[in-house]
């Protein structure tokens, strides 16, 4: 009941383009939805999306990435108290958007989502290692992996604490 009130209150003062709600996810503070929140520009052609095996491939990679990350004692603490349902969904959207898979990114921007998490470079790199392992499992060629990682790498500046 309280949660519903908070959501209602949030929507009363929400911007014109409110973030959609998802029944299995915890509510978040309202924000303006924009693909710019994804933190990287998408590839121009469809080759990367195809190389990643489309939606099925990206979904498996994201799920594997999250599974590996929450099982890694180096970084698992960061994911505690995190809405993993929402994380999986928004990561899949983000990857799909950047890989030019035709998705809209509905999540928040990188700075907001990582605020106060205390992410360090070593944590960022640990996540990269898990993403590489997940891509390896999907047999994504190394050079194709690097093209994608090049899009994600600058997010270090907005996700890692100064």
């Amino acid at each position: 009941m309280l949660k519903a009130l908070i959501i209602a209150a949030a929507f009363a003062g929400a911007p014109e383009n409110p973030s959609p709600t998802y029944p299995n996810e915890e509510a978040v503070e309202p924000y303006v939805q924009s693909n710019a929140n994804a933190g990287a520009s998408p590839f121009a052609d469809k080759a990367m999306w195809a190389a990643f095996g489309g939606r099925a491939g990206v979904d498996r990679i994201v799920d594997d990435l999250v599974d590996r990350s929450i099982a890694d004692p180096r970084i698992s603490e960061i994911f505690k108290a995190h809405d993993l349902v929402r994380l999986r969904r928004t990561l899949k959207e983000q990857f799909c958007y950047i890989l030019n898979g035709g998705c809209e990114y509905t999540g928040r921007d990188m700075k907001t989502t990582h605020r106060d998490l205390g992410v360090q470079n070593a944590d960022f790199n640990a996540l990269v290692e898990h993403l590489q392992a997940a891509m390896d499992r999907e047999k994504i060629p190394f050079r194709v992996q690097n093209r994608f990682l090049a899009k994600l790498a600058p997010m270090q500046r907005t996700t890692v604490e100064r």
């Binding site: 205390g118 360090q120 070593a122 790199n125 640990a126 990269v128 290692e129």
Partner: peptide, 14 residues
């Protein structure tokens, strides 16, 4: 050194 970092971490690079 970041002031917040309490522990010295190793092997963090790729």
């Amino acid at each position: 050194t970041p002031a917040a970092a309490q522990e010295v971490r190793t092997l963090g690079k790729l």
